[in-house]
Design a protein around this nucleic acid. Structure first.
Lengths: 197, 197, 197, 197
DNA sequence: CATGAATGAGGGTTCATTCAT
DNA sequence: AATGAATGAACCCTCATTCAT
């Protein structure tokens, strides 16, 4: 539609930041336009609607994420390594597209109920499948404890990873790889001192 | 203020469910009134404003929660037991007031910026203090690994616990105590099989 | 309707004060009820509606006023004395029912357009008639200047008298009779020093 | 703010007429929009709020008025001439901005209590100062009667001048200068035939 | 590309009024 | 006589969206 995809990308980045900071419903189109240095009406030259803006933000994020996830999964690692790679890619995604992830984390549940955002529900199902499979295979292979409640563990893992988007700031003290390592250490081996009485 | 606290409590429960399901900003006062079987204007006989409704929901939740937390902390357990008790109380609170916790989890960041909701920021600081202290004492006592990044661990723990409010349904397959146990097993001892190569 | 006319009169006095202080439209029924120490709905035991309250206030004021005016007019004084008596009665009315007069002064123009308040327009016409006649007779009798613009003078006189209700406080430094005397001195003989060059 | 001051001025004139006719509180924003041939919401493209509309109307009126008053006062006339000039300017202002003056006359007392409209109270104080000084100097110079009650006279003069806005119609039988002359004749020399027994 | 001006729906809220108790 | 609770209409205002320029 618009002849300048760069301007589009700039506007999407601006919108994502505002959406992430204030919430989708609480953010007015005018607020985004202000941040972009234009009038509200002018945004409609670039986008069809407010909905289409979040949609594009979320699709962009999920497309990129699944590109990386699929590469990881196609590599056919053993479960522990698969988990490590998925978690690392997730934190990298937070590093690259923090606002988009924050929007996904906060708004996707409400948005997914609407037809336009059915892709969110689809992605979520695929996500769940991926993790459940990985965890099950890990248990089967003896890499993970045999007494794990797989669904519960999946939920904990999923939430902790994404919720990091709400506090992570790029360029801060920890690189995404460091955070991933720390997180995996906690989840895999626990925070308790092993042979403590 | 209003001499019928029962009706108030009913209305607060109704409002909490709607807020939790749709988000605070996306929920109109009319929507709440519908769910309560009355007209929008009638809500204003019981409450001053939409803001005052969430405020009361959140204050009620935090007051009860801190009552229990303070009891735990006053008991002077060793760090591992303190952690166990705090996590268990948290899941119990989710069991009792799921919607309130979900609202807290999703909206408190945006709300806390407003003067009216300064108590949210205060509670958050106290929360952080409590966990950081518990973790530090645990490390000092040799109960937790010496190489923990305390702040990072705090964030992971905090988020995973509260985010459970978004999927937990009371009366489901798992009691809050079971979920707490499972969660603690994961966080304390990890999900990895201990002596796996 | 109500078996206690005293309570009614109290309530009317209270309402008149609030209406005078804040304006009819800006005053809510609840505000009046607050001032009377009851709930808004309870007022409807005594009165049919908000309109009926002002109506009763204004009718009471005009009935009393016209009672006095009619007595003055029936006395058949010469024009100057008639004017003096009318002005004095007006300031006495302000002294007795200041709030009612203030309401009349501020709201009657807007209210008079409505059928229910047609008596206001009727009173205004009678008022105008009375003053025009008095002034004309005064001119004819040589008591007032021959070159007066009667209608203009009527308007000035009418407005200045009633507008005093907006600042007059009973029990203040000036009695209504004093104010009337001062006012008449100004209007009849002017404020200028007679033989000033 | 808005780059089309003409439209703004048109809308302000329309709003002033409606406010003057019905009263500020009794006038809905929708009513103004109707009179302007647009929808209620559209007014908010031009103005921040209903309050800001009256504010701009009243500020415009007072700014212009004080511009003229200050010129008169700076000329250093003798008291009688000052009074004549002030009254004449007042009626001219009514001629030019009748609705604004009518709003000022009817609503300023209630509005002045609010912080936003503090400039009304300030103007009123300056107004009072100006008239009291003029009258006092007139008495001192022997131009006005020595036995005048200055404050009382000020109130009468102030009210009669402004209250004329409630009946004056531009383009009618009397020019503002004629009305001023008639008014001054009454106030200065009285309406009584001088040597009447 | 962007603006200026408007629309129409819906937002939170207030209010006069009603009525069973 | 008065309360407690509710109604329904209207209020001021915000918002996503449109479109001629």
């Amino acid at each position: 539609m618009s002849p300048s995809p760069e301007r589009r990308r700039e506007l999407l980045a601006t919108a994502a930041e505002v959406f992430a900071a204030q919430g989708y419903d609480a953010t007015s189109v005018r607020r985004i336009a202000d941040a972009a240095g234009m009038l509200a009406g002018s945004l409609y030259y670039h986008f069809d609607s407010k909905d289409s803006i979040v949609e594009e933000i979320l699709r962009g994020f999920l497309d990129e994420l699944w590109g990386r996830y699929d590469t990881v999964l196609a590599a056919g690692h053993e479960p522990r390594e698969t988990m490590r790679a998925l978690v690392t890619e997730s934190f990298r995604e937070i590093d690259r597209h923090g606002p988009a992830v924050a929007i996904y984390q906060k708004e996707s549940k409400a948005l997914a109920a609407r037809e336009r955002f059915a892709f969110l529900a689809a992605s979520q199902r695929k996500f769940e499948q991926t993790w459940l499979t990985t965890l099950q295979e890990g248990v089967a292979a003896g890499a993970f404890r045999a007494d794990l409640d797989i669904r519960l563990t999946y939920r904990f893992v999923r939430d902790t990873v994404w919720v990091a988007a709400s506090w992570y700031r790029p360029g801060g003290r920890h690189s995404p790889e460091e955070i991933a390592r720390e997180y995996l250490a906690m989840v895999l081996d626990g925070i308790a001192q092993p042979h403590h009485p």
